[in-house]
Design a binder for these strands. Structure first.
Lengths: 143, 143
DNA sequence: TATTGTTATACTCTATAACTATA
DNA sequence: TATAGTTATAGAGTATAACAATA
């Protein structure tokens, strides 16, 4: 089976697993993905998030609305350019991240059971390369 | 970034890439995935395909309708159990597979550019393990 | 009564385009 | 005039439930 198809299927497995695990919290995989980015990358404009996460702007707005309604995220106008929103985790969001990271670790344990730490490391680097390359290719086409 | 999230994003990249590449043929990633299974696994009942591909029955029916309308796939009643459909590639479908495999190889080349054959092999085994494990876990819950 | 496959339908997710406000 | 973000809406994708045919 071609690697591209296997990756498609693996991604589906990850999505299913995340959906099940996060269901109790009311969050969906994309919320988790977005919170992770905010937790790791710090505060950024929505424009930057769009590039990093490769989403449609309207989708990002919806996700942020959900998270803001839960009080996990805050949007403040950038004083330097009042068109921009600076998006950041709230204190409540930072706390929620601890639980979230635990749940995502559970997903990882389930998903990659039977795969050694060494291989997981290789996997991590390879997937990072795939995602980076994909973003770069898209930027070349559209930007 | 957690491996589960990276896999989610990698799967998205694979899906995007497949969608773009297959657009000209009128096929979508799931059509390609299904054709690949049929090409490798030979003829099977729809029930078997459901287990392998982890889809909703109604989705599979739609995909098969599309492929049958294009003449790429044939459904025949199983004489041993007339409730079942045996699904198989047609001659036209087998020919189309050659082109499809080439296109999927192109996707793979783009997606995994900069990743060595050795690492690709590790990746292949790891993803296979992930998918197999995921299917097994689901069967335990629901079956 | 259970199973295979199908249909009809509702639900969710995503993409498109038009809009507001700032620059 | 262009950009950041938003909204409204249409379209694609997915899941649910009722159904016909066969076992």
């Amino acid at each position: 089976m071609p690697l591209a198809i296997l990756l498609l299927e693996g991604g589906q497995a990850a999505q299913d697993n995340l959906r099940d695990t996060l269901k109790a919290t009311g969050l969906k995989p994309r919320h988790g993905q977005l919170l992770m980015r905010l937790s790791q990358g710090g505060a950024t404009s929505q424009q930057d998030l769009l590039e990093e996460l490769d989403l449609d702007p309207s989708v990002l707005v919806g996700l942020l609305n959900d998270l803001e309604a839960e009080g996990l995220v805050e949007r403040v106008r950038d004083p330097a350019d009042r068109r921009r929103h600076i998006v950041a985790l709230s204190d409540k969001g930072a706390k929620a991240m601890q639980e979230l990271q635990g749940q995502i670790a559970d997903v990882e344990a389930r998903l990659f059971a039977g795969i050694s730490p060494d291989v997981r490391d290789v996997l991590r680097r390879a997937l990072h390369s795939v995602c980076t390359g994909h973003r770069a290719a898209k930027d070349n086409h559209c930007g």
